[in-house]
Amino acid sequence: MTRTGKNIMIVGVGGQGTLLASRILGGAMLEKGYDVKLSEVHGMSQRGGSVVTYVRYGDCVHSPVIQKGEADIILAFEELEAARALPCLKPDGLLVVNTRQIDPMPVITGKAQYPDGLIGKIEGKGVQVLAVDALTLAQQAGNSKAVNVVLIGALAKHLGLEQQFWLDIIGKTVPPKFVSLNQKAFALGYQA
């Protein structure tokens, strides 16, 4: 039986927790019996720079990386990183973006401007966009650090698996005392 897999790109700023998101996603797809590949970048690029992780699953996955026009979904933890990754999205792909702006150093030093209204401009190109205020939802769930899990929730809704499966995965992944917080955060993202 051939099942359709997906190429998912998770982008953000070093330190935002994109790695954990890709690991949870990869683990979930392994459990569903898919071939899975994840590609990460460690080391220097993690120090507040742009970070990109790739999650690919399907019957048989060869390359660990996703390139121009190959991503079914981009999950962006930050708006500028969403715009940077956009060329990797398939023309009919989905962009799930956290409505957060973090100035990069060239903007901080005044060498460049943080572009205005990025999400609107991306939508203007006919891209399907789901904008999520993950920080507010995480705070609603009880902890601003759960931004991560809110965004996984928002993404998970578009992967065709039932919500309970994900809640179980989260139950198994995080320490017991954080389970209910994270499941709440996930559910808020899932409904976004």
């Binding site: 715009a83 940077r84 956009l86 990069p104 401009k121 891209v127």
Partner: peptide
């Protein structure tokens, strides 16, 4: 693929 015209500032570490 699609992209926006806007120049996107680099984000070095």
């Amino acid at each position: 693929s699609k992209q926006i015209e806007e120049e996107i500032p680099m984000r070095p570490p």
